[in-house]
Write a protein that binds this DNA or RNA. Structure first.
Length: 271
DNA sequence: ATACCATGAACAG
DNA sequence: TGTTCCTGGTATC
């Protein structure tokens, strides 16, 4: 679930349900008891999202930092009485109309504005921020000899991209994940940024990842295309566009997917 | 009942 | 580069 679009969607949806109201906050599982006590009964001012991070600002100056990691999930119950706890609930936030449970996060902790600032400072631009600076992304990529497939997963290069958007954004731009960042042209890097921005925004709207472009939705070009498909290469056996068998391999501990036909290893005439 | 897997990232060495 | 942590769904015995 959690790439940047999920986090921003959560901030928006949960903000509407919780912000401006006093919350009963607890830690049914017990691993966030001390933190929950500090905000229990206080009004949540707002939920902030940046990259894959969330911050909960309370009116008593307390701040909670949440990072879902690979397993973290929220469960929302729109009932006035909190439902029975299911599974390992690290944090529960309830008001008169809704209960929000958080399970399995990498981080759920009290924080200070300074903590938050240092996290934001080490993150790259988040395409979902209004004032995101693409030049920071272009500069980092064009200067690096690391493979672009790794750079896109590096949150200090661009914040919010995960394994699905990496695979899909590189596919859409015909770029092989193993190409060093500095072998990409400025145009290619700019196009990647545009793609990532569009995919993340669409992801927030859809509340899921569907990366297919209009041309492919209107005129499926492959045998393997079926209604309801959502990705070109991620976790697929065959390329959704040309039916070539997808190449998948381990890239620093995460599975990388690419189409050997649609994604060229190098540009002719460059290295 | 057990194994494995996942849209993540910090840390050790 | 490898290990560790977090949870729950699905596959496999």
């Amino acid at each position: 679930m959690p790439e940047g679009h999920t986090i921003h969607r959560i901030a928006r949806d949960h903000g509407r349900l919780l912000a401006g109201t006093a919350l009963a906050v607890s830690s049914p599982q017990g691993r966030f008891e001390a933190g929950a006590e500090r905000v229990d009964g206080h009004v949540l001012d707002r939920i902030e999202a940046y990259g894959k991070h969330l911050w909960y600002w309370f009116d008593n100056s307390e701040l909670i930092h949440v990072h879902l990691g690979l397993f973290g999930k929220y469960r929302v119950a729109r009932t006035s009485t909190p439902p029975e706890v299911r599974g390992a609930v690290r944090m529960r936030m309830s008001n008169a109309v809704v209960t929000v449970d958080l399970a399995g996060p990498t981080a759920c902790e009290l924080a200070t504005p300074e903590d938050r600032a240092s996290i934001v400072a080490r993150l790259g631009p988040d395409p979902l921020q209004r004032d995101a600076d693409p030049q920071r992304f272009v500069a980092r990529v064009s200067r690096s000899k690391a493979p672009i497939g790794l750079l896109l997963m590096d949150q200090s290069v661009v914040a919010g991209v995960g394994n699905v958007f990496r695979a899909e954004a590189l596919f859409v731009n015909g770029i092989d994940p193993e190409r060093p960042g500095r072998s990409l042209t400025v145009d290619e890097i700019g196009a990647l940024w545009s793609t990532i921005t569009a995919m993340l925004r669409q992801g927030v709207k859809d509340n899921r990842i569907i990366t297919l472009e209009r041309a492919d939705l209107d005129r499926p070009r492959s045998r393997s295309f079926k209604r309801g498909e959502s990705t070109y290469v991620y976790k697929r056996r065959d390329c959704l566009r040309c039916d070539s068998p997808i190449r998948w391999w381990d890239m620093s501990g995460r599975t990388c997917y690419a189409c050997p036909t649609c994604q060229t290893p190098v540009i002719i005439g460059r290295g």
